[in-house]
Computed example of a mutant assay.
Amino acid sequence: MKKIIASLLFAVAANSAVADPIADAVAHPDRPLEQRMRDEYRHPQQTLRFFDIQPDMAVVEIWPGGGWYANILAPLLQEKGKYYAAHFYIDEETKDYYRKAREKFAEKVKNHPPYKNVELTSFHPLKNDQKIAPDNSVDRILTFRNVHNWYMYNNEEGLNGAFKQFFAALKSGGQLGIVEHRLPENANDADQQRSGYMKQSYIIQLAEKAGFKLVASSEINANLKDTAQHPKGVWTLPPRLALGEEKEAEYLAIGESDRMTLKFIKP
Rank of each mutant, 00 (worst) to 15 (best):
M1K: 10
M1D: 06
K2C: 09
K2E: 14
A6Q: 11
F10K: 15
A11K: 12
N15A: 15
S16M: 14
S16L: 15
A17T: 09
D20Y: 11
P21R: 00
I22Q: 10
I22D: 06
A27T: 04
H28W: 12
Q35H: 01
Q35M: 11
R36Q: 14
R36E: 13
M37C: 06
M37P: 04
R38N: 01
E40W: 09
E40K: 12
Y41Q: 10
P44W: 05
T47D: 03
L48G: 00
R49M: 12
D52K: 13
D52F: 02
A58D: 06
E61P: 00
E61R: 00
G66D: 07
G66T: 07
G67H: 01
Y69R: 03
Y69F: 13
N71R: 14
L73D: 07
A74Q: 02
P75H: 12
Y83Q: 13
A85F: 04
A85S: 08
F88T: 09
E92C: 10
E93R: 11
K95H: 12
Y97F: 12
Y98L: 08
Y98N: 08
K100G: 05
A101D: 08
A101T: 10
R102L: 10
K104Y: 11
K104I: 15
F105G: 09
E107Q: 14
H112V: 12
P114I: 07
Y115I: 08
S122Q: 07
N128L: 08
N128V: 06
D129L: 03
K131Y: 15
I132L: 06
I132G: 01
A133E: 01
D135I: 13
S137M: 01
S137F: 02
S137R: 02
S137V: 06
R140K: 04
N149E: 10
W150P: 05
M152Y: 05
N155D: 10
E157L: 15
L159W: 15
A162P: 02
K164Q: 14
F167W: 13
K171Y: 08
G173Y: 02
G173P: 00
G177F: 00
G177N: 05
I178A: 06
P184R: 01
P184D: 04
P184F: 01
E185Y: 04
A187W: 00
N188P: 04
D189Y: 14
Q193S: 09
Q193V: 04
G196S: 01
Q200E: 15
Q200A: 07
A207E: 03
E208K: 05
K209A: 13
A210T: 04
L214R: 06
A216Y: 14
N221K: 09
K225M: 09
D226C: 14
D226E: 11
Q229K: 14
Q229W: 10
Q229P: 00
H230C: 14
H230E: 11
K232H: 10
K232V: 08
V234K: 05
V234D: 11
T236H: 02
P238L: 02
P239I: 04
L241I: 11
G244A: 08
G244H: 11
E246P: 05
E248S: 13
A249I: 03
E256W: 07
E256H: 04
S257C: 05
D258P: 07
D258I: 04
T261E: 15
L262H: 03
F264Q: 03
K266P: 02
